[in-house]
Design a protein around this nucleic acid. Structure first.
Length: 110
DNA sequence: GTGATGACGCAGT
DNA sequence: GACTGCGCCATCA
């Protein structure tokens, strides 16, 4: 993997880092905002976010259903839920409750 | 170069 | 509301 080659990964990381505290975003929203064309690319980018710097709050990125699909990629499967709950987000059965209210989009950037 | 996989999304049922 | 099938693009074997 090239190190000096800035892929769309950095675009994903930067956008995710803009997500405010207590808010979450979806892969589809990020993919649409960056015009990646596929939400899979966002997931693939976050797959390497652990080597990014500064660290990316990947726990704030969930799928369209508000499900913590990527929790297994964290240090512990429960870490993602713990972090979200720590930010005041209610998580039940691996899904964000009141998801629509905590959902953040680039349009809310302002 | 081909086939399979993946932190997904959408339309149809 | 939940499940299934298909499509999307990049990376790996």
């Amino acid at each position: 993997m090239s190190k000096n080659k800035e892929n769309y990964y950095d675009l994903v990381y930067d956008l995710v880092r803009e997500v405010p505290y207590g808010r979450v975003t979806t892969y589809g929203t990020v993919a649409n905002a960056l015009a990646l064309g596929s939400a899979r690319m966002v997931g693939w980018a976050l797959n390497q976010c652990f080597g990014a710097e500064p660290p990316v709050p990947a726990h704030r990125v969930v799928n369209r259903k508000g499900e913590l699909s990527g929790r297994v990629h964290f240090s512990t499967p429960t870490l993602m839920q713990e972090l979200l709950e720590s930010e005041g987000i209610i998580v039940k059965d691996n899904r964000i409750q009141n998801f629509k209210s905590v959902l953040w989009t680039p349009d809310d950037w302002q």
